[in-house]
């Protein structure tokens, strides 16, 4: 039995296998419509979510399986003080696979240690969000036709932006990838990613505060939201929330085939006027997210076509 807690749990070859499978599901959805019949997915969301939870549920339903779970901690026994360990031990009796989102970092790892069924990390605080990374990788693969030889700008909250950490870990396995890290000083990429991942893999990277200067060089621009829920001090959030705003003016000096990604939800960081620009890919990411989660569920349940 395998869990999926960190993007590093998958080899490069396994990630590419999931991308291939997801693309096959996109081409032939009918062939997969009953493949998980009789299986149940529990979605345990201790923190609000729209896309990730619905994407997991849609993925399981499109595979012919069933879903159960809760969408906020208040509607579970956690409100009575139940621990993550006890919640997981209970849910194992009802479901064949679990997707968990929790505000505390490391909660999915703890869940996997207590679980008798596969556990998927659907986001743990500001730490990791590996299934979003799979969706990002599928998007990049479909837009660029490759995962190597790309210059990727990551912009906004690089400190608490869990999708950024997982994406850097995954993309740093590929040849010719360069990262441009664009953030305010207070929201710089954490040391464990800078030193543990980037330095460890000998990847080229630079840090800047200037989005406009970085834009002409980029193949991919990955925008992120400054997340209010990660700040203990509201004044800090207000000061930093509009650090970078992407609008049509800023897009004048980019490569014509730039791909703009965003894990969503967005607030102000991308003007809605950019949505119709052919370079905007963030709603395609949402679509691809469901297909890559279908592939992941199949892999962890060891279901084959």
């Amino acid at each position: 039995m395998r869990h999926f807690i960190d993007i590093a749990d998958l080899t490069k070859e396994e990630i590419e296998g999931l991308i291939t499978l997801a693309e096959d599901i996109m081409r032939h959805p009918d062939g997969y419509a009953q493949i998980c019949r009789g299986k149940k997915l529990a979605t345990l969301f201790f923190e609000p979510s729209t896309r990730t939870r619905l994407s997991f549920e849609a993925a399981m339903l499109d595979l012919g399986g069933a879903v159960l779970g809760f969408s906020q901690a208040d509607s579970s026994s956690v409100a009575k003080g139940e621990s993550v360990s006890d919640t997981i031990r209970t849910v194992c009796y009802y479901a064949d696979i679990i997707a968990i989102r929790h505000p505390k970092e490391g909660a999915p790892l703890l869940a996997s240690q207590r679980s008798s069924v596969p556990v998927i990390n659907a986001g743990d605080g500001g730490h990791n969000h590996p299934t979003q990374t799979l969706a990002d990788l599928l998007t990049i693969h479909r837009e660029k036709g490759r995962l190597g030889n790309l210059t990727i700008g990551l912009c906004g909250d690089l400190k608490f932006g869990r999708t950024v950490h997982s994406l850097i870990t995954a993309m740093s396995c590929y040849e010719g990838v360069k990262f441009i890290l664009i953030s305010p000083e207070e929201l710089r990429l954490p040391g464990y990613v800078r030193h543990g991942v980037l330095a460890g893999k000998n990847v080229e990277w630079v840090e800047t505060r200037d989005l406009e200067c970085a834009l002409p060089e980029l193949d991919i621009l990955y925008m992120t939201r400054v997340q209010k829920e990660r700040f203990f001090n509201e004044a800090d959030y207000i000061r930093l929330k509009d650090s970078f705003i992407l609008d049509q003016d800023k897009l004048k000096n980019t490569k014509p085939d730039l791909s703009i990604l965003h894990p969503l939800p967005r607030v102000n960081e991308i003007s809605v006027k950019v949505d119709d620009d052919p370079r905007a890919c963030y709603f395609k990411q949402v679509e691809y997210g469901k297909f890559i989660r279908m592939a992941l569920i199949m892999m962890l349940l060891e279901v084959q076509k």
Partner: peptide, 27 residues
């Protein structure tokens, strides 16, 4: 923000990440 701050009876486990600096990280 770590789960170890709220979950009861969880082992506090740290792994060595750099022998030279003797640095450890929470798992």
């Amino acid at each position: 923000r770590c789960i170890t701050t709220t979950e009861q009876e969880i082992d506090q486990i740290f792994r060595l990440v750099n022998e030279e600096t003797c640095s450890y990280r929470c798992v």
